[in-house]
Design a binder for these strands. Structure first.
Lengths: 175, 175
DNA sequence: TTGAATTTTCAATAATTTCTGAAAGTTTAG
DNA sequence: CTAAACTTTCAGAAATTATTGAAAATTCAA
């Protein structure tokens, strides 16, 4: 397992960022290393490459499998388990969004809907409920957009990417 | 500072979620409490209401001011400093997105651009660079959409919200 | 000015999260 | 079957992050 300097930099950086996307530094690094390698990697490659314990790798792999970001891959003639990225970069984006929707957005929406069933019995509470309603509507919209992205084909994505700063035009079409 | 049960539930939940949005539990709770109250609150209200120390409130306020999510408000006849939410719920969403873009997306894009300047001197590295390019393009697109949302007027937002599940139609217009 | 009211800072401590590595569990070649 | 190869688990240790509260700094009324 030799790691090129640029992969090294990327892996380290991705680890730091990972914590913002719902998994910890090590999990982020493991994923980055797998994504940067076309060839499947095994747990020892990962432990060596990242200088972390074998047990830590096992936990990380479990987590990444639960996000469906990596998949097991059998390498003929080797008894070890190997792993590769599950899907394209675009798939990665979709899965992270989807998973976060399930873990964060849905529970919050569910709580808000509960709270919004209640009647306000004073002015302060009325204000609070009104604010909750606005938050609910905003999150609901984000949730719907997220769902929509899931259904989007990679071709549409490519068109969307090429739009570049023309992205604004699309939103203007709406009104 | 009496807190209604529904506000209480919301504040606690928002605190937990807050950690996903770039600030910690306490900061999330402070913000939620301020948002739920039309009347400005002072540091003691917050410390009491959330059962946290005065020092912790001070740190939290500093953080929220740096995100421009709350603003100081002078209450005539009182020497204490008071705080209210800075902007609408929609503004809150925009600010959080914008701040995260600056803190997370921009540094990552900058690193990727650096790394992508290099020449691959073997097949593995070529593959890694290709993956980095795709990640770059995806993040660049997200960054542009985020920027676009900043410029969007609240009226367009309202239209967008009303679209509901019709959101998909809009994306189809693109291709 | 002065000093009481208020806010901020920050070292010490507490709470939480992550990581290790040995032991237990599982799989498979022979 | 057996045992070596490999993986997973998990209790304790280490590292990180959050919180307190007393002291220092600031603000402002008198």
């Amino acid at each position: 397992m030799k790691i090129s300097p640029s992969t090294q930099s990327f892996v380290l950086h991705f680890g730091e960022m990972g914590s913002r996307w719902g998994f910890n530094r090590t999990v982020g690094q493991i994923y980055a290393l797998i994504v940067m390698n076309e060839a499947p990697l095994n747990a020892d490659d990962l432990a060596d490459g990242l200088s972390i314990s074998r047990g830590n790798v096992s936990m990380g792999i479990k987590e990444l499998l639960s996000w469906r970001l990596i998949k097991r891959q059998h390498v003929p003639g080797d008894r070890k388990e190997y792993f590769t990225a599950d899907g394209s970069i675009w798939d990665m984006g979709k899965k992270v969004l989807e998973e976060r929707r399930k873990r964060e957005l849905d529970p919050t929406l569910s709580l808000l809907r509960d709270l919004l069933m209640r009647e306000a019995d004073n002015e302060n509470e009325a204000y609070a409920l009104q604010q909750m309603q606005e938050i609910h509507d905003l999150l609901e919209m984000i949730s719907q957009w997220t769902e929509e992205l899931q259904r989007m084909k990679p071709e549409s994505l490519r068109t969307l990417m090429k739009l570049g700063s023309g992205v604004g035009k699309v939103l203007n079409v709406i009104k």
